[in-house]
Nucleic acid binder design. Structure first.
Lengths: 339, 339
DNA sequence: CTGAAAGCGCTTACAG
DNA sequence: CTGAAAGCGCTTACAG
């Protein structure tokens, strides 16, 4: 079923059918319009978007880019609930606006440019910040609107939706301080991550504001993973530095810390209060349930998608494309007061 | 940069460039081939796949379909770790085979046919079984290969990768029986779900084999969600039927059961042993760590993808398209022996 | 080994 | 209000 078939059955030209489909109603008499619509209905015609893309130079496709791990190709970014939640929300929003979503993990820079040129994608969203340096170089050659998250890239017009990472750790550290904790561990290796560095600054800011000294030995520089947290938790227990609280940069890390500290003989939260980061669903299923910092992931995804759509349609955004979203603490059971 | 541009720069016809790109080397002299390749490299040319799809009638796109919840459009299937893990694995496999992945949630049947016709997708994969009845009707009108999971649809040539659900619950129930449990609750409302009915049959089979009576009051027909499990757990505790073990059909449900029973005064696993289903990552983070049935999700995803690719390329599959994968029990801490 | 022609299904100016 | 022509970027027969 093609435009031509419909045109023949309706006894009009392809042009007219095309106009009807595209709602250019001013150019078609109501009578022909109705007749054409009836026939389209009857035969269940839908236009071939490949052909349309070819002429229009727009594709109605938005590319969702995730970084494939270069080191371990068996890992799977989609198992990260943060990423998959984002994808779900973005997909729905794009679909409701008439766009199709192509999802692709990318290893080399050419994987990306290929996608762009191959399909004339109308916009792209980078779901994780791993390819920022590559993006920095490519930016000038990408002609479609681009959205990223949590980036420190300073590219003119780049849609960049961040969350207030510094405030996040400021809040969790302050939460501990307000409850009488003064020997507070910071668990994460921030090396090379802009996001984590910001969180570390939030930790230091909270200490400073409260007149507490920063102690390098309270920094447990392990990766923000379950395994990293596990090691940190064990070490906190064995170090015997009098630490009563630990702030982390990921729920998964916090869960590791709880388990590690437990293996070292600590009771959680009696002997060690722990706060996570991300407010993942699984924090509700741990024992104790995890107190954590919430990023409002849906808002983050929607903000970026809306800005991207606006830019695709109008060529620009009516509000600044760099937005920093607020964070908040979600109180559950893993952090308690010493009073 | 188009074929034409490259052809001009190389001083040959578009045809020749096309042949070089498509590796029809027999038709091009090595010298021209090298020259053309050099120019392609130099200008970073990649073919426009919209145009290619238009002529070839194949698109190199595979559609990944997830059902949007009709009842609650704010829910998000991608938050289901089973689904997102599948997507991650499928995406990688397809990409490595030169395919692009279009992901789309679907509410009405037309959402689907639209996708197919719009983009000439080469194949589609239904990630969840929710649209089986719709698929049953559509099947005859879909011309490309289709893969589904855990379906009871009997459609000729349909790629259908299942896991042995019956065996799954047989294993978990047997596990309990072998450890001295005789009053074993089954937690799930199987109504309308082929998969859950199979699991229920596995439960009954294990009881029967061991000469244990099936008691309807041991069936806690709650949805296989955290909330459902929570209710079931509370009710198990308050019913005082002497139940010492509960088998479930989802990890998330098992976690709810543990929490609910705990709220009812039970200690887990001392007073109640619990076994999950799915082997989700989060089962490693609960307390006690969850004993569960593992589906080998990567294998499931890869099997379906490989069969689909084979069918796209050759028009058929060399092995039967209906495969049932084995399941196994993963022992952790949530189920103990009464001896 | 190489190329000129036709066509995939659509849309955009341009005439009438 | 309606239509014939040209073109988007590619590939598939078909000649030479």
């Amino acid at each position: 079923m093609t435009l031509k078939d419909i045109a023949e059955k309706a006894g009009v030209s392809m042009m007219t059918v095309s106009n009807v489909i595209n709602g250019k109603t001013g150019r078609v008499s109501p009578k022909t319009r109705d007749k054409v619509n009836r026939i389209i209905q009857e035969y269940g015609y839908t236009p071939n978007l490949n052909a349309r893309s070819l002429t229009n130079k727009v594709s109605n496709i938005v590319g969702l880019i995730i970084s494939a791990y270069e080191t371990n190709k068996d890992e799977n970014y989609l198992e990260n609930p943060y990423i998959s939640t984002m994808i779900g929300i973005i997909e729905r929003e794009l679909r409701q606006n008439g766009y199709y979503v192509m999802i692709r993990s990318v290893i080399k820079g050419t994987d990306l440019t290929e996608l762009l040129q191959n399909w004339n994608v109308d916009g792209i969203i980078f779901l994780d910040p791993a390819h920022q340096t590559a993006l920095g170089k490519l930016a000038s050659s990408i002609s479609c609107p681009v959205a990223v998250f949590d980036s420190n890239l300073e590219i003119d017009g780049l849609i960049n939706v961040c969350s207030n990472d510094r405030k996040g750790l400021y809040l969790s550290t302050k939460y501990m301080i307000n409850r009488g904790h003064s020997r507070i561990a910071f668990v994460a290796d921030c090396e090379g991550s802009h996001v984590l560095e910001q969180r570390f600054l939030g930790y230091r800011q909270a200490l400073e504001e409260s007149g507490l000294p920063f102690k390098p030995e309270f920094v447990y520089a392990y990766p923000p993973s379950y395994e990293g947290g596990l090691e940190a938790g064990k070490k906190i227990a064995s170090d015997c530095l009098g630490i009563t609280a630990a702030v982390t940069t990921a729920d998964i890390s916090a869960i590791g810390v709880m388990e590690g500290a437990r293996l070292g003989g600590y009771r959680i939260p009696i002997d060690l209060s722990v706060i996570g980061y991300d407010n993942l669903q699984l924090g509700q299923y741990t024992l104790p349930k995890l107190t954590t910092i919430s990023q409002n992931i849906p808002q983050k995804a929607l903000t970026a998608t809306s800005l991207l759509l606006e830019k695709i349609r109008t060529g620009t955004t009516s509000t600044p494309p760099h937005v920093v979203l607020d964070v908040e603490i979600v109180e559950r059971q893993s952090a308690i007061s010493l009073f």
